[in-house]
Design a protein around this nucleic acid. Structure first.
Lengths: 207, 207
DNA sequence: ATAAAATATGACCAACCAGTCATACAGCAG
DNA sequence: CTGCTGTATGACTGGTTGGTCATATTTTAT
């Protein structure tokens, strides 16, 4: 956790620091991100940085937290009245929302996605600590509901499928980002394609 | 490309160097991997390393090449007579093969997977250079055949689906590795689960 | 005005990094 | 034995890293 000093900072300065950190972690992994660059871009002294944070891990965890909160807020606002959704419609909203969020907040998306793809499980656990896989828990609950409502195949392994869905969501978002480009209008077909595949499978429906 | 000197090396020494490099890149990203550690573990002098390779990028590219070749060899040997396979059976073999390869060659798998998940597309392109996405091309061709044979939904976006399948394959392998453990016998159910999901979709078949 | 507490600063440290280079050594050809 | 070629070596360079700390400045309380 950042030190109290950080939260006492005048808003303008605090935002400058946060933005500099976001910039750095959007363009670098935790390991290659540099405290020096953060303080330079924030326009503060190295010493000041360590009055705000305990160490590099501390900023990173904080930025990751901010990232997660903003995305969660974004998504939950979008699917506010989620009770009335069919599971696949909900997933469609979530996938599309994920892409839109990534388009509107490319830096935050880069940070989040890079961390999710992190290969070292020990590092992942050390950073996350208490704040465990919230996003997957949410998905798992949605799937349980979907099964209860008879929409989903009851044979599904919920934990495993939720894990796959999370990764698929990220894959879609990144495929769109790198292979399709920034034409903000044309991403829905890709969501539909992925959703249709998830819902009906890839086999030829004629057979 | 490694320098001629490297290939002139007595086999024992060359293998020592390769193994040390594999170790290093299995445990670190390209950026955080250290030439110093490689030379220490290989038991050679720093200067010798630079008689064998132009720079860090040079070893990395070489190791990545070795990794790709071994996996390709492993998989192609397994699905030797692929003509007689149904598409989903083929995918099952490939998924299962991917997991088995990862179990038998955890270091190589770590290197390959980490690189595929690499977020910086410029870095990716710089490393790959000529040797473009072979694995996806193969999958795309398999899907074209599957569609032609009437096994696959002709509406599928082949490029997009192949991309998704690659990522899903890696996800399965890593889920198994981290969530299930090293019980070498019990991974087939996960492959079946994923395959069933891909084939028939997630919707309740009763409806 | 004075004392105390909070914040700001950048020089500094030890550790590490990728890459270089002058030198030494080995084997081989003549 | 003399050169020559390919190989081996590790001290060294210039740079960067995360983190510290003594000092200075600002803010607050009295």
């Amino acid at each position: 956790m950042p030190k109290p000093t950080f939260f006492n900072l005048p808003e303008e300065k605090r935002i400058r620091v946060v933005d500099a950190a976001i910039d750095e972690f959007a363009n670098n992994s935790f390991q290659t991100a540099g405290v020096n660059r953060i303080v330079d871009n924030a326009g503060i002294a190295k010493g000041s940085f360590y009055q705000y944070f305990n160490d590099k891990e501390d900023v990173f965890r904080y930025i990751l937290e901010v990232t997660g909160e903003r995305k969660l807020k974004y998504l939950t606002e979008m699917v506010a009245n989620l009770e009335k959704y069919d599971f696949f419609d909900l997933m469609k909203e979530l996938f599309a929302g994920g892409i839109r969020f990534a388009m509107e907040n490319p830096k935050l998306a880069a940070i989040g996605n890079r961390f999710i793809k992190e290969t070292d499980p020990l590092f992942k656990e050390k950073i996350l600590g208490e704040m465990a896989p919230k996003s997957n828990l949410f998905l798992e609950q949605m799937m349980e509901k979907g099964i209860a409502k008879g929409e989903l195949d009851p044979h599904l392994d919920v934990r495993f499928s939720a894990y796959l869905l999370t990764n698929i969501s990220i894959s879609i978002s990144e495929y769109y980002q790198f292979h399709v480009g920034d034409d903000y209008q044309h991403f829905l077909p890709y969501v539909d394609k992925a959703l249709a595949m998830l819902k009906h499978g890839m086999k030829n429906p004629q057979t």
